[in-house]
Amino acid sequence: MRIGLVSGLDWRDGIARLRAAGAELICLPLLSFAPWVAAKRDRAGLEHAERPPSPSLLEAIELADGAWISASAYESEGEGVFYVSSYIAGPDGPVSRYRQAAVVAEPGRYEQMFWSPGHEGNEVAASPLGPTGSLVGSDVRSAPAWEELVSAGARAVVCGVAEDAESWPQTMTAVAGLAALHSVIAVIVNRGGRSNDVEFPGGGAAFDRHGAEIGTGELIEVAPG
């Protein structure tokens, strides 16, 4: 099957283009539909949150035109209650949801100011890639988060991140290692472009059950897990 990875800021164009190119699962990075609000300690960023289910996610599902979507939305359950929700959605709507649990605060990524740690646990969706779980942000480097998904039956893990040029290669290495450790397929997509004065290199890759790279770039052929 073909997996499309949307790194750029224009997610609408990316989804439409990759669907046209035959992608059956389209993966988006961390905070797929919002600017990188965590760049600055400015509460104005809270205004970008959407009520769940994120209307942007629903629009992305429409644009995917029958393909599956993995994306993370900035959501608010009401005043003062914010999360980053990672969805795996089929043509008929969201199939699984979990909320980013490891939330960090460091220069350029003041996530703790903008969203709370998720507390609902993770879910596995029956996607075209097989039993699939998703992880976003710092959760992709969390061994317990991978163990939870694998214990729930995941045979593939799709990861959405927002890493700078320095941490992106390290994160890919970690994901490849965790894929090998748990003998699952892993797909990772990084945020690209400049947002709120932070530059993201973009990019993405897929790894097989041994942690070996299957491919990189926007469109990758992967055998389902």
Binding site: R43, E79, M113
Partner: peptide, 8 residues
Amino acid sequence: HAADPLCG
């Protein structure tokens, strides 16, 4: 506090 979501 500077990072509380309910104040300025």
